[in-house]
Design a binder for these strands. Structure first.
Lengths: 164, 164
DNA sequence: AGTGAAAACCGTAGCGT
DNA sequence: ACGCTACGGTTTTCACT
């Protein structure tokens, strides 16, 4: 049922993925040794994994605090049920906001769950919340602040857009 | 290796961060050209950013679908309010679960918000939900599963633990 | 598909500006 | 601090096993 494209990934491929997930800059020589291969076939496998889109990209994980984006907010959004077009418009608007680092269509209490990363709460209210409320499809927003993060899913397309 | 690093990010540093956030494997020569520097000082700045822990790590972004982890679930957890120790025990238990890729202490309706990545719903129920409910601190769990992801915060410490 | 060589390429340390 | 140059290491291609 829910185990589709496992095909083509053998044990060595999974080892490679595990290593690169932890450190994407692992030199190919080290990677080869860790997975029990010599450098050449290891490099080939990585290339193939990239072409097959199993390895989608490589990202640097940046300290949110260091760049002044220390506030994370989750917003549960309820939209009007009458029109799919409205929902599409909502999604498109959200995709255009760099402060919104994640957007999921979810079951349960809300329709969408958004993760927003911003410098402070005032910015959230002034920028994101206001923009979201202006969208006609949005019926309700429940905001919940992350007071502390014990574990985070790491690399994020942060909004580093404050240049002199 | 870990320093405060609150200070000293100029425009070039931010440019470097933006590039590496998009592609952590950008060759130093290319990076240097993009930010308007020659290779050596560019390399030096990257090293400094790493030592200052502004660049925390580099991660490969792996297709969840390709490795058979196609289900994402959000769990809003309410814990007993009477004891901080219970909350600590809860956090420790959660940190030990590789399926839980994110754990935030949040304001609002719930106390914790968890993001869980697993092969299918059955695994969620059998593994994660069951384990969480067994914790004495947990009073209530609201599960909401991601039916579609329009944007995701990217690199994640996925649980690739199914090896021959 | 994996191995082992050689050649091109890149990263970085040292020194001069 | 930046830029130039040189050296050591890495990546990658190739013919072969």
């Amino acid at each position: 049922m829910n185990k589709p494209a496992n095909i083509g990934l053998d044990a060595i491929d999974l080892k490679i993925l595990r290593v690169l997930q932890t450190d994407a800059r692992t030199p190919n020589i080290v990677l080869a040794e860790k997975v029990g291969l010599s450098p050449s076939p290891c490099s080939r496998r990585v290339k193939l994994l990239e072409q097959a889109d199993v390895l989608e990209s490589y990202r640097a994980v940046i300290s949110r605090f260091a760049v002044g984006l220390s506030v994370t907010v989750f917003a549960g959004i309820t939209v009007e049920r009458h029109s799919d077009d409205n929902a599409d418009a909502f999604v498109n608007a959200v995709l255009a906001m760099p402060e919104v680092v994640a957007c999921h269509l979810v079951s349960g209490e809300h329709d969408f769950l958004l993760e927003v990363v911003i410098p402070d709460m005032a910015t959230y209210e002034a920028t994101v919340l206001r923009a979201l409320l202006a969208l006609p499809a949005v019926r309700d927003i429940r905001t919940s602040f992350a007071m502390r993060t014990y574990k985070s899913n790491g690399a994020l397309p942060l909004d580093i857009a404050k240049l002199p």
